[in-house]
């Protein structure tokens, strides 16, 4: 499980005079959950659509499980896709539609696959309903179901929880979590908290350019920074800075102590425990400790 599932090399896509994606390169390893991050117009959906073979790159190379997505039929049974804003054909009953798609995918027992996928997204009752009668959230989940049919090795999800209520969104996130390690999952989303929670690595795009591609630990400085929310007490900043491994320590007016460290002081848990121990010993009351920085902060810093 260490081969590259998806490889983008200098991929460029233009729409008329506008360059939507400009020489973007990154790789997604097999079994990874990979996030595509960026503000509106960053090129996330364009990049995603090129991975699915919906759009063709104007330059550069793109491989999904070794195949060129623009080759006819190359992604069959290899990739499950939840496309953004793709309308389900309204006249089809959901069960018939999913069975048809499962048959097109060449699955052995299409009706069973369709039923199981619908069960997975918690919508077995929609089997006989026409797709046009589904609410936005239900349609999204049915669309998710079709992406999961046949357990494809690569699953590409464009905004999987957009427009879903919190409970359903949590269920969808759990589905993605369950796929980790067994499937390669690429999630394109604006929801940075969700991506931080789910993804092993990310690519950050901005105005068509790749800003950075890194593991989530690197993005959020998991191995280099932690924060302590102080409730009350005087934080002995000079003493904190003097602790082994601590490179810098700052206290902001809201009472958040940010500590940056390196590996000279031992493993991250040792540095964190040492710092918290010092604060407790000086009768500083602590509300919480969080490792790294929020992905959102990092993205705002980079874009």
């Amino acid at each position: 499980m260490s081969e590259n599932a998806i490889e983008l090399s200098e991929v460029t896509k233009r729409f008329g005079p506008k360059t939507a994606v400009n020489r973007v390169s990154f790789t997604v390893r097999e079994g990874q959950c990979y996030g595509l991050i960026g503000p509106n117009g960053a090129g996330k959906t364009t990049t995603f659509s090129m991975m699915c073979g919906y759009l063709f790159p104007d330059a550069g190379g793109l491989r999904v499980l070794g195949a060129d997505p623009s080759t006819p039929g190359a992604l069959k049974r290899k990739v499950g896709v939840l496309p953004q804003d793709a309308v389900l054909p309204p006249a089809w009953p959901v069960g018939v539609l999913l069975t048809y798609w499962a048959r097109l995918s060449g699955l052995a027992d299409p009706a069973r696959e369709a039923k199981e996928a619908l069960d997975k997204v918690g919508l077995p009752e929609t089997w006989k309903l026409p797709a046009g009668a589904l609410s936005h959230g239900m349609a999204k989940r049915v669309s998710m179901a079709q992406a999961l049919m046949g357990a494809p090795p690569v699953v590409l999800l464009d905004e999987p929880t957009a427009g879903l209520d919190p409970k359903i969104a949590a269920a969808v996130r759990q589905l993605i979590r369950d796929m980790k390690g067994r499937h390669t999952v690429v999630v394109s989303s604006h929801n940075l908290q969700e991506l931080e929670e789910l993804c092993d690595a990310t690519a950050l795009l901005d105005r068509g350019n790749l800003v950075t591609a890194a593991t989530m630990a690197e993005m959020t400085s998991q191995a280099a920074e932690f924060r302590v929310q102080v409730a009350r007490g005087n934080v002995p900043l000079p003493d904190v800075r003097a602790l082994p491994g601590v490179r810098a320590a700052t206290l902001d007016p809201s009472g958040v102590l940010t500590v940056q460290f390196d590996t000279t002081g031992g493993a991250p848990e040792e540095v964190i425990t040492r710092t918290v121990g010092l604060l407790v010993a000086r009768e500083v009351l602590i509300l919480g400790v969080s490792r790294g920085r929020k992905l959102e902060d990092r993205v705002l810093q980079l874009t």
Binding site: V79, P83, A86
Partner: peptide
């Protein structure tokens, strides 16, 4: 009618455009 609302995307990931 399939390209406009993009429902063709559900098909082309499973089968060739010629099909």
């Amino acid at each position: 009618g399939e390209v406009g609302p993009r429902s063709i995307r559900y098909l082309t990931v499973r089968s060739r455009r010629s099909s």
